[in-house]
Nucleic acid binder design. Sequence first.
DNA 1: TAGGCCATCTGGTCCT
DNA 2: AGGACCAGATGGCCTA
Length: 221
Amino acid sequence: MSPKTEKSHSRSERYLYYDVSDEEDHSPLLPCSPAPSAGSEGCVVAEKFLLTDSRESQSKRQKGRRRSQVKNEVTIIKQKKNRRVKANDRERNRMHNLNSALDALRSVLPSFPDDAKLTKIETLRFAHNYIWALSETLQMADHNLFNMAQQGMTDSFEKLSKTCLMVDLNSPNSSCSSSSDWDSLYSPGSQSSRHSPKDMDNFISQSSSCLTYTDSFSEFI
DNA sequence: TAGGCCATCTGGTCCT
DNA sequence: AGGACCAGATGGCCTA
């Protein structure tokens, strides 16, 4: 088990089995309904009996009501706890799914071998820029192919193929990229001290052109 | 040690 | 009613 997982696991355990005793309801019971008037005028004994009886049954009823109230409150609290635990579980799963999706995204992005795993925000920003670069690439490819078709695929093909033909997007050592270039893409705007926006623009334009030529001409080789 | 990143919990809101 | 989504709070870990 990786440290991360272990850490996560211990976290989960900590949260899953957190002490909920403070959630116990210690509030006073709701006041019971007032005693009904009892007795008849003619018979004291009977009245006493009735009174005694009514008091006893009354207290019994009160006790019964209290018990059922306590039972109800306990079940409500249990129900609430249960719902909360379920919701936490779903939320945890949801975040795990989100992280899986982010991992999937990281896996399709070009990676720089020595670099640490991209943070979430870096992944999103890099993906955004990468998609932009790819779309620029496609546009340029269309444009260049059109020009080449018009010129009979002579000069421009040679020039372009010399510079960028063998570029591999995944290779940071290629002529079109350097570690700092990749870094600049990884780097979120908030940490722009590492690389200027100009660096990023340069990199994107370079990688766009290289991509254009490698992808577009590969079928001609 | 401060700051960044992350996982998780939690309560609120919206949707089905 | 229950689930999905969201944002805020909290606390742990790591690094400069």
